[in-house]
Design a protein around this nucleic acid. Structure first.
Lengths: 333, 333
DNA sequence: CTGAAAGCGCTAACAC
DNA sequence: GTGTTAGCGCTTTCAG
């Protein structure tokens, strides 16, 4: 069979109806008599007719395809979000075009434009960073957008996330109650909205509220080796409790500590602010803010389907509950 | 701006040329005088014209989109493969539609049919399992297919992988040379082609060649907790060396051993047959067959571009080199 | 309930 | 070099 062996036209001829009628039965339009519907269906099955989605897309201006913009597929944080999105997309019969923007060849706004050219019906944006050009690209289009697992200072964009400020404060409190007073914040990127407007303020407020001084914020610590290498600095600065944005980074710190013979959690406590599978399989297991990543993705996709159908939305900014999972990297007194 | 505010027709009118000419400059056709090209380009920029990829696809019968079929996005094995695919796809300006088939709502052949309906120009199949219906769906279509990081008994399908049999034998040899004689094989799924026709035969041959008896093969051990729970059975069976298909499973065994106070690698050695990021961040770090996942993905995508352009292919079955990374879970004498 | 016909926005002969 | 003209395969009024 060649691509597109048989078209709607062939079916129409064989079933002795017009292509309009075939189109109706394919699309589940009720205005078709039962017996003609069945006749058409029979021919469709006999001929193995499959509608050409591209032609459908051109004619109907709906492609039943949504675009995903994600920084890095191999970061489990985004992979788990994507899984939630994917499951709901399947449920509503949408396909997913994924665009990864880690590669510096692909800027955010280009990625958006590319998806728009493909006529996607909606976009889910997962990067923790929404540059101004990207925000403007979104504003220029009618195509609905949802931010998943992140926040932007553009209130106009619907988003699904957790209360990062509250979560971090709770985590800091855990360290504090365990008797750790020299608390540090280890960030991947200090300029993302989540970090700049949620985590950092939460940290500073906590330190101030508890008279713990200025504190220490370490930035651009992004992967296992960054974390591993940071460890000696932490020791030098006398840090005894640390909250780390990425769990793979936290593992780096943990491993460096273990290798140096530092006792975790006695001498240093570690909490990661985003837990993937990795946080739970290392030893000692990492205490973590468990964001419901799968659910965030699923809810974001569900929200997007509503937007694509022009349904009423009760609230554009959705906040899901998180959980502070107390494991072995904290004493949990 | 609405979707498709301005079309090729608007550009033609403004530039005082026919839409054919606009199409030519958009597609880089050289048969356009330099000054008309520039004039058209100027209008394109002024109007922010962006071609509608769906219309292009319908007219040209090429969508510059490839389909990816993957069991599970949150399995780093596939995520790393996907990253290699994605980078090369970007290079050749292809978009990627990803279809996840872990969800039991979506069978392999349905996934294929769905991608075909979307008129993808090619498909990369990454599941370790290619059911007969899926193979037949591939055979029915002209759309090229490449298998990445897996093998099938259908020699007609191009594939990119490593020599699993050789790799496993080398790993078994490492255990053997470390003095471990009670070797076991821990499989995710015994029925995949890679396992049934590569790993299991390699294991059986090795055991026979070294007079090590029947050996022990454990099947359907798929995740961390499966591995964790398997551990006591391994001890009971007197296993002192084990090769594990998935690294997350190997970590489960490792953690159970650690929790039980078993000394790794002294009392038991562990090798994983597919290393992702996880294998290297746990402690003790896992000795692993490092498959060049990124490269496998990249080569598979490159191969697919050739197939999509009807270029000559020198060899359809590509084997990439692997590496046996000796870490802390083996003694490496 | 069904058919005719006009596109959707673009590509690709084919002419000139 | 550039324009004209058929479509690509389907949806969607609009009649009847």
């Amino acid at each position: 069979m060649r691509k597109q062996d048989i078209t709607i036209y062939d079916v129409a001829r064989e079933a002795k109806v017009s292509m309009a009628t075939v189109s109706r039965v394919v699309n589940g339009n009720t205005n078709v008599r039962k017996d003609t519907r069945e006749r058409v269906l029979k021919v469709i099955n006999r001929l193995h007719y499959q509608p050409n989605a591209v032609a459908q897309g051109l004619a109907s201006k709906r492609t039943t395809t949504v675009g995903l913009i994600v920084p890095d597929l191999t970061n489990l944080y985004f992979a788990e979000l994507s899984k939630g999105i994917d499951d709901i997309a399947l449920l509503y019969k949408y396909n997913i075009i994924i665009t990864s923007i880690e590669n510096r060849l692909m800027k955010e706004d280009q990625a958006i434009q590319g998806l728009l050219n493909k006529q996607v019906d909606g976009i889910i944006y997962m990067s923790d960073n929404l540059p101004e050009e990207a925000a403007e690209a979104f504003k220029r289009t009618d195509t609905p957008v949802v931010l998943a697992g992140t926040k932007s200072n553009h209130q106009e964009f619907p988003s699904v996330a957790i209360d990062y400020m509250k979560a971090d404060t709770e985590a800091l409190n855990l360290l504090y109650n365990d008797g750790k007073k020299n608390l540090a914040l280890v960030l991947d990127d200090p300029d993302t909205v989540v970090n700049a407007e949620n985590r950092i303020p939460a940290y500073k407020k906590f330190m101030a509220d508890h008279n713990l001084g200025e504190g220490h914020i370490y930035s651009n610590i992004k992967d296992h080796s960054d974390g591993y290498n940071l460890y000696s600095q932490l020791r030098q600065d006398g840090i005894d409790g640390v909250i780390v944005t990425r769990d793979i980074t936290a593992v780096g710190i943990l491993n460096a500590a273990t290798d140096a013979g530092t006792k975790i959690p006695e001498e240093m406590e570690i909490v990661t602010a985003s837990a993937t599978q990795i946080a739970s399989v290392v030893r000692p297991a990492l205490t973590a803010i468990r964001q419901p990543l799968y659910d965030i993705g699923a809810v974001a996709m569900r929200l997007l389907t509503k937007l694509m159908n022009n349904e009423e939305i009760d609230q554009k900014q959705i906040e899901l509950p998180y959980e502070l999972l107390k494991k072995q990297s904290t004493a949990n007194k």
